[in-house]
Write a protein that binds this DNA or RNA. Structure first.
Lengths: 126, 126
DNA sequence: AAAATAATAGTAATTATTATTGTTTACAAA
DNA sequence: TTTGTAAACAATAATAATTACTATTATTTT
């Protein structure tokens, strides 16, 4: 049974208002403004829980620590190989790649995670 | 300048003969059979170097530690959500998703990483 | 309001990885 | 074939990211 907690609420709110996919550390530093003695463990525990509940998304990009996204609508991400930022990408549905993966595979495909990498506008201009 | 080392050779050979995408820890435990006092640091350093040289591939699946693949030919992976194993997938080229990502994005797309998740044959049978 | 229990803060422990240091090895040039 | 030097090594320490533990507090149930 899950009980409401103000700390978890605050973590979720924070993510809902950010578009830069912050790390657990960043969440911690910011939520601390409202809950000065929240512990990092609480942040990690709630990020995991919220992810499991499907209320946020965890991004494991393979570069640096995991990031979190308050936007759970289906979308993709761009990892800028220069500045390291993670940006939202507007891209049409590509779930057909699941079908492509299924043909020639003897099991079940449930979904996929895809990260695009490249250069963001900002970095291209420099 | 890169000098040959028997330890690195052994790590590469080990990966070339495995199809289960072992972790650094597994590489370490196995390479130790041939080099009993190889250190874990050496394993990590060489896995990084080989990855940078493009002689092996690093898989950051987001579930558990990074894994490594001696097969650098373009292919994709299936993460079994039941047993946790990582399998090779036969799938036709899907680089067109880079083009899809590019339309509506103001920067440059260099590539993508995709992991499929689902259930392997073995787990479906149980 | 009291009891039950989930969640917390604070802290310790673990896991995964990278860095440091002194020694050894590979390779090139004499 | 010795010798200089830079790369690679083993051993170990350090760091980063995350998870676990425990006593206390907050939330929900009775």
């Amino acid at each position: 049974m899950i009980k409401h907690s103000r700390q978890r609420e605050c973590i979720k709110d924070f993510l809902a208002n950010r578009y830069d996919h912050p790390t657990a550390e960043t969440v911690y530093l910011n939520v601390r403004k409202e809950f000065p003695n929240i512990s990092l463990g609480t942040v990690y525990r709630n990020l995991s829980l919220l992810t499991k509940l499907g209320e946020i998304r965890k991004l494991s990009t393979g570069i640096g620590p995991d990031r979190f996204d308050g936007n759970i609508s289906p979308h993709y991400h761009l990892l800028c190989t220069k500045c390291g930022n993670v940006l939202d990408l507007e891209i049409e549905n590509i779930d057909h790649i699941n079908t492509l993966a299924k043909s020639g595979f003897d099991g079940e495909i449930e979904g996929h995670v895809t990260y695009f990498f490249g250069k963001c506008r900002n970095c291209l201009e420099k």
